Simulated assay, not measured.
Amino acid sequence: MSSSEITGTAQIEEAQGVPAERAGSVRLDRVTHRYGRGGDAVTAVGPVDLTIPAGEFLVLVGASGCGKSTLLRLIAGFEEPTHGSVRVSGIAPRPGETAGVVFQTPRLFPWRTVRGNIDLALRYAGVGRAQWAERRAELLARVGLEGTEGRRVWEISGGQQQRVAIARALAAENPLLLLDEPFAALDALTRERLQEDVRRVTERTGRTSVFVTHSADEAVFLGSRIVVLTRSPGTVALDLPITLPRGDLDAEELRGSREFAELRAQVAHTVKAAAAA
C-alpha cells in the first residue's frame, strides 16, 4: 500500500467516525498463532487482544515458551497470525520496513567495521549517501559509541556490539522499535547501563517500543506498561501501567525506591503464578 493509499484510508475512516491510527501504534485483534499442521500443530500464543498507543514503551514478560518472541515476530511482520489480525500504524506489518528490530545477539557483519555496519543499515533505509556521515555520527552518539567507527566487530566488547545493533535498528525512520531480550547475554553491570541508554534513546526519539524479557526488574525499570503472558499458549495474565517518578530520580534511586520494589514483586509473583497455572 502506498503512502497516498494509507492517507486516503485514514481520511475515509475519520469520515466514518473511526479514528485514524497514529504512526507507531500497534493493534492485535484476537491473534492466535500455531506452528505445524494437523495433529502436530502447536498453539504458541493466543488469543491475544492488545492495543499499544504510539510512543508507549511496552514490555512483554513471562516464562520461557509463553509466546513473547512469537508476538514480537508477528508485530515485525516476520510471521503472519494463524487467526486474527496485526496492524502497525493502521496497516499490516511488512518485514524489514515496519520496525527496527534488535535481537538477543547483535547479528553484525564481522567483516565490516562499526562504520560499515551502520552505513549498510542507512543504505537499506534509503538514506542518501551524502547524509551517511552525519546520520552515522548522530546514531553512534545516541548509543554512546563516538570514536568507534573504524573498529572491527571483534575489537569491541559484547555490550558495545549490542549498542551498534541498537544504532543500526534506529537507522530507519520508522516509528517502532522491537527488542527481543537484547541484554540477556550481558553481565549485570553492562545490562543495567544499556537499560538506561535504551530508555533514554526511546524517550528522546518518541518511538513506540516493545521489549521482551524474562526479568521483572528489567520490565519495571524500562516499561511504561507491562504485559505478563501465561504459559503456552500465551494469553494476557496482567496488563499493568507503570507510573514511576523517572524524571525525579536517577537510575540507582529509582531501583531503590519503595514503589519500584512493590511493582517488581507484583510482576514477579504474576509471572510465577501464570507459569504454574
Rank of each mutant, 00 (worst) to 15 (best):
A15L: 14
E146W: 03
T43Y: 05
G159C: 14
E97R: 06
L74F: 10
Q11L: 15
V86W: 14
P106K: 03
R231Q: 11
Q104E: 15
G223K: 08
P182T: 07
D197W: 00
V101F: 12
L28E: 13
D250F: 11
A274M: 06
P81N: 08
R231T: 11
A92K: 10
S2W: 00
L222N: 10
D180L: 09
T202R: 07
A268Y: 05
R258K: 05
R142H: 03
G158I: 07
K68N: 02
P53A: 14
V212D: 03
A130W: 11
G39C: 00
G144S: 04
R34W: 09
L176P: 01
T270C: 15
V143S: 05
A121S: 14
L120C: 12
Q266N: 00
P175W: 05
A265L: 12
A185F: 10
H269C: 07
G36R: 07
T9Y: 06
G17M: 02
R135S: 09
V212H: 01
Y124D: 00
I166Q: 00
T9G: 04
V267F: 14
L170G: 13
R27L: 15
A137Q: 11
A265R: 15
P182F: 02
A251H: 10
L28V: 07
I118L: 15
R163E: 05
S215M: 13
G17Y: 12
G223E: 09
R152C: 12
S2C: 06
A275K: 00
A76H: 04
L58N: 03
Q131D: 15
P182V: 06
H214T: 10
R135W: 14
V26K: 02
A15R: 14
Q11T: 12
D239F: 09
E138G: 01
E138F: 07
A169H: 03
L194W: 08
L139I: 08
R34H: 11
E79F: 15
E149I: 12
V18P: 02
D180I: 08
V61M: 06
R22T: 10
I242A: 12
G84N: 02
K68Q: 04
A125T: 01
L58Q: 03
Q160H: 04
E252G: 01
I166H: 01
Q162G: 04
I156F: 11
S215P: 00
A23D: 14
T7H: 11
V228L: 13
Q131M: 05
R168L: 04
S85N: 09
A99R: 01
A265S: 13
A172T: 04
I226W: 09
H83C: 06
L58C: 04
D29G: 02
K68W: 07
S85V: 04
L145V: 05
R199N: 06
A44K: 01
S89H: 08
V164W: 02
W154H: 12
S85E: 15
L240M: 07
R207F: 07
L72M: 10
D29E: 14
T98L: 06
G38L: 07
P175A: 14
L178N: 00
E252S: 09
I156Q: 06
L60K: 00
A44N: 05
A54T: 02
V153G: 05
R258T: 09
A121H: 04
E203G: 12
G24E: 03
T230Q: 03
S3H: 02
R168C: 03
V101W: 02
L249Q: 08
I91G: 06
R168M: 04
V86S: 13
A171H: 04
R34Q: 10
E14M: 10
R246Y: 15
